[in-house]
């Protein structure tokens, strides 16, 4: 295929990697924005989801946040931010949108993970005289870990995808390589940018799967 060869040539050309619009700078922007957003989203959503799950309250909230997150287009939210005063606040509009869309999978999975811990195990732990904190730290959290990690992966994938769409409203990130390619009718560049974005997403997903496997497991969580 001519286009695929062209995309390869584009990627092989060192000039496309250097400078303000080069791959390295765009990649750095993408990773920077995504990293901050994921950290903020985790700091907000994980404690809240785990706590609600521990209490067994707020299930409708967790579910509705997730459903609402699905119905709202990322592109629309980014566009709304970019026509608001936020537009002149650097990376802030992107980061805010990324945080908003990373929260639903994190919150819902943390909540569902806590709720799906076998009730009889929880009862048994209570019967052994465990306090609420002990129960949370030594029983519920280790058992909920699988779904919490799934939520983290979903959140990360969502963040990478949203950061790409940010390019459509003129923000930085790897998506800019794609949008610039569209604006200049340069199909090889569009495809090269898409390959880079897809690789980044797959790499992050793969790294999180590997991290989940490598991290030591609580002995009681072996199921």
């Amino acid at each position: 295929m001519g286009v695929l060869g062209g995309a390869w040539d584009w990627l092989a050309d060192g000039a496309n990697w250097a400078g303000e619009n080069g791959v390295w700078h765009r990649l750095a922007e993408h990773v920077y924005v995504s990293g901050i957003a994921l950290a903020v989203a985790c700091a907000v959503a994980l404690p809240l989801g785990l706590w609600l799950g521990h209490l067994g309250k707020g299930g409708t909230l967790a579910v509705n946040v997730s459903n609402a997150g699905r119905a709202v287009p990322v592109f629309a939210v980014l566009a709304l931010f970019m026509v608001s005063p936020l537009r002149s606040a650097g990376y802030l509009p992107t980061v805010t949108a990324l945080v908003l869309f990373a929260i639903p999978p994190l919150l819902t999975n943390a909540y569902v993970g806590m709720r799906e811990v076998d009730r009889s195990v929880v009862e048994a732990a209570r019967g052994m005289g465990m306090s609420g904190t002990q129960l949370f730290l030594r029983v519920e959290l280790p058992l909920a870990r699988g779904l919490v990690m799934t939520g983290l992966r979903s959140g990360a994938v969502q963040v990478i995808a949203t950061a790409t769409i940010a390019a459509m409203v003129g923000q930085g990130g790897l998506g800019r390589i794609i949008t610039t390619g569209f604006n200049t009718y340069n199909t090889p560049q569009v495809v090269a940018g898409a390959v880079l974005v897809a690789l980044l997403a797959l790499l992050v997903e793969g790294a999180l799967v590997a991290a989940d496997r490598l991290l030591p497991r609580h002995p009681s969580a072996a199921r």
């Binding site: 295929m1 286009v3 695929l4 990478i160 995808a161 790409t164 769409i165 390019a167 459509m168 998506g175 794609i178 390619g181 569209f182 199909t187 569009v190 495809v191 940018g193 898409a194 390959v195 974005v197 897809a198 997403a201």
Partner: peptide
């Protein structure tokens, strides 16, 4: 990501 998916289908 969707933007990448649509772009990969462009050719």
């Amino acid at each position: 990501p969707s933007l990448a998916m649509f772009s990969l289908l462009l050719p």
